[in-house]
Amino acid sequence: MRRSRFPFIVTMAVLFFFYLPIIILIVNSFNASRFESGWQGFSLMWYKRLFHEPEIWRAARNSLLIAAAATAVSLVIGTTAAIALHRFARSRLQRFHFGLVYTPLVVPEILMGISLLMLFVTAGVELGLFTIFLAHVTFCISFVAMTVLARLQDFDESIVEAAQDLGAGWWATTRRVLLPMLLPGLIAGGLLAFTLSIDDFVITFFVAGPGSTTLPIRVYSMIKYGSPPLINALSTILLVLTFTAVAASQRLSRSRH
């Protein structure tokens, strides 16, 4: 049977659509022109400028700090959630628990942002890095839990039974079998949480206070009020960083096998 070329053509067109804006952005970051009106020669001036913007560096530091803390906490809470959801899957409590973990994944970010803002305002918590951290942990828990749960569900159930059968108690089973086998899932969940936290704008914007600027908030205000070429340069740097991080983590996970 001859196959239609149509799906192939759509795929290629969409890939072009995906890459076009990003490529133009990267190219423009090396453009000496202040506006996007045309190519005026290769230049690294925007990158040099970027280094003299202390606010960007402060925002980056805030972002890293929050991402690291949110990843650590959400990894612990998300993993215990996944273990509970997996081990006691049939109980009524876990059905509620699953709903509770799952819903934040489908709720639009703005709703989570505004509801957390209402909580903090009512409770009189001062908005700042701490409230951002609390918000980030909240949405990261669900992503970590789902990643780890998927990994748990791939397990051969009898492996846990085998450990118990060989004399391992609850703690020994968890430490010697469950956690080591979960490690790739934990790494994946952790990376996901870290990226989500570093990237989040909407929720952060609602619960951030004065002086608690994160990198995405800084980027947003630059988009709104700043100079486009600077953003091009910053985006390119971020792009390269993410690429290396993802490539490294993939190589790492491949070599583990």
Binding site: D156, S158, E161, D165
Partner: peptide, 14 residues
């Protein structure tokens, strides 16, 4: 004091 041979062997993959 009993031990099991599982149908899938259930060897620890790690």
């Amino acid at each position: 004091k009993v031990n099991t041979i599982f149908q899938s062997y259930a060897l620890f993959p790690h």
